[in-house]
């Protein structure tokens, strides 16, 4: 506890007066808004690190996918055969990479609790 004489009151009043501009509504709102925005959005470093790691991972996986899909047996006749051009190993590998990159893009804006 601080003492409670005249000088004490004067000192408290001086500190209160010094803090007065900071307690104005606009000032408080601006400071809080800036801070909340910072807490709501992940920082750039994290985005770059995760984005970089995700992209490299996807690229490495993509180079392997073509070999995997190359082993698939595609029917020579029937309905599926009409769309066989869509299921070329390159197309499937590109789709898998797009999916992986899409997942990375989905996860990036989320903050890890």
């Amino acid at each position: 506890m601080t003492m409670n004489d005249a000088f004490d009151q004067r000192l408290k009043a001086a500190f209160a007066e010094a803090a007065e501009p900071l307690n104005e509504k606009a000032e408080a709102e601006a400071f809080a808004a800036k801070l909340v925005a910072q807490l709501s959005h992940p920082d750039r470093k994290r985005v770059l690190m995760l984005g970089g790691a995700g992209s490299i991972g996807s690229a490495v996986a993509g180079t392997q996918l073509e070999g995997v899909f190359d082993q698939m047996q595609i029917p020579a006749e029937g309905l599926v055969a009409n769309f066989a051009f869509l299921m070329a190993p390159e197309t499937l590998a590109a789709l898998a990479m797009a999916l992986a990159l899409g997942m990375v893009a989905l996860i990036l804006p989320r903050r890890i609790a």
Binding site: F15, A19, L22, E29, V36
Partner: peptide, 21 residues
């Protein structure tokens, strides 16, 4: 974050005042 924002609004003056001094 919104609830924390309200706490920031209430106490920013004291914290900033203390650090300014």
């Amino acid at each position: 974050v919104a609830a924390f924002g309200e706490l920031v609004r209430r106490h920013q003056g004291v914290v900033r005042g203390m650090l300014h001094r």
